[in-house]
Amino acid sequence: MAKSKPRVKAPKSASKGEVITIKTLISHKMESGQRKDKQGNVIPRSIINHFTAKFNGEVVFEVDIEPAISANPYLQFKMRVDEPGEFEFIWNDDDGSVYTKKQKLKVG
């Protein structure tokens, strides 16, 4: 796909102290830099190289991503809920693009 599109599945509300599961997926071909085209030229590497999950501005989970992560990178991780607030998910592309997605979390 021309432009990468993130998808996030995280609860909209949780109770204090609960550990929630967050799933993320982003469309990206994850060109490894290991492949050659039909003319024998190396296809340059072009991947999502970093992922950050923040909650209320604080980093809760990060991933350094290598070309060995599959196309359309999938990440699943946990977070303990201490207070209500807002998630911010950030994907960094080799080409300098930054993709973000925000989502609110209620505590009740």
Binding site: V60, F61, E62, V63, A68, S70, Q76, R80
Partner: peptide, 25 residues
């Protein structure tokens, strides 16, 4: 693999549980 690196997960105390999943080549 051609290069051994796959990924590095950075957890925090806020993770609650040190557990993560992905898909690799």
């Amino acid at each position: 693999n051609p290069n051994p690196g796959v990924a590095t997960f950075h957890f925090t105390a806020r993770s609650g549980v040190a557990e993560a999943s992905t898909r690799m080549r």
